[in-house]
Amino acid sequence: MTLIYPKKEILIPVLIFALIGCASVGPNATYYMATTSFKYDPTYVSYMVELNSHEIGAGFGSGVNTSLVKVGPQTITWKDAKTGEIHSAKNQVIITKEHLKGKKYLAAHLYPDDTVEITTSNNWPNPTEKGLKWQDEMRKNK
């Protein structure tokens, strides 16, 4: 019995796609990147911040995890360390390939009204101006 091997012109692209899989191709693209979160409500401490049921870093950007990040609508939840109350994003957060392409870091910004903003960057993430202003106002009104 003789085995027939495909030509190199066909074999190389097939191997490349097999190695890549669907990691960054198609509507359900998946990326692995450093993730963290920033919480701006000074009345509680957040923990178990999750992006699509996968824990991401917390601690005002000081804790970072390497996480699986999928393109599309996101489910973002976190808990209040004092009460265990579960919070979830009240707004619809959608991540596109353009947000993630070529980026190293993703940060979820958890605002006091339970809305969430996602930022991506190639450098260590920073808090947003919006969040810092909100945090300052809440501290002044205590």
Rank of each mutant, 00 (worst) to 15 (best):
M1D: 11
T2G: 09
L3C: 06
L3T: 15
L3G: 03
L3V: 13
I4Q: 11
I4D: 08
Y5W: 09
P6W: 08
P6G: 00
P6A: 05
K8I: 12
K8S: 06
E9K: 14
I10F: 05
I12M: 07
I12C: 04
P13Y: 05
P13T: 09
P13M: 04
V14T: 14
L15F: 07
F17E: 00
F17V: 08
F17M: 13
A18D: 03
A18R: 01
L19I: 11
I20D: 00
G21D: 06
G21H: 01
C22Q: 12
C22K: 12
S24H: 08
S24F: 08
V25D: 02
P27R: 10
N28A: 10
N28V: 04
A29C: 05
T30A: 03
T30V: 15
Y31P: 00
Y32D: 10
Y32R: 13
Y32C: 05
T35D: 01
S37V: 07
F38Y: 14
F38L: 11
K39C: 09
Y40T: 06
P42A: 03
V45E: 10
S46D: 13
E50Y: 04
N52K: 04
S53R: 13
S53Y: 12
H54S: 14
E55H: 03
G57R: 09
A58G: 14
F60S: 13
G61P: 09
G61A: 12
G61C: 12
S62Y: 09
S62K: 15
G63M: 10
V64M: 12
V64T: 15
N65V: 08
N65Y: 13
L68S: 08
V69P: 02
V69F: 08
G72H: 09
P73E: 14
Q74F: 06
Q74R: 01
Q74N: 00
I76E: 07
I76K: 07
I76G: 05
W78E: 07
A81K: 15
A81S: 15
T83F: 00
T83S: 14
T83R: 02
E85P: 00
E85W: 05
K90A: 05
K90T: 04
K90M: 10
K90G: 11
K90H: 13
N91H: 07
Q92R: 14
Q92D: 11
Q92H: 08
Q92N: 12
V93G: 03
V93A: 03
I94L: 07
T96C: 02
K97L: 00
E98N: 11
H99S: 03
H99M: 12
L100Q: 00
L100M: 06
L100C: 03
G102F: 13
G102S: 10
K103Y: 09
K103R: 15
K104V: 14
Y105I: 01
A107P: 02
A107Y: 05
A107F: 06
H109Q: 12
L110D: 04
Y111H: 15
P112I: 06
V116R: 11
V116Y: 02
V116Q: 08
T119Q: 13
T119G: 07
N122G: 14
W124R: 15
P125E: 02
P125G: 11
N126R: 15
N126M: 15
P127C: 04
P127H: 05
K130V: 07
K130P: 00
G131P: 02
L132Q: 14
K133E: 10
W134N: 13
W134I: 06
D136H: 09
M138A: 01
R139Y: 06
R139W: 07
K140C: 02
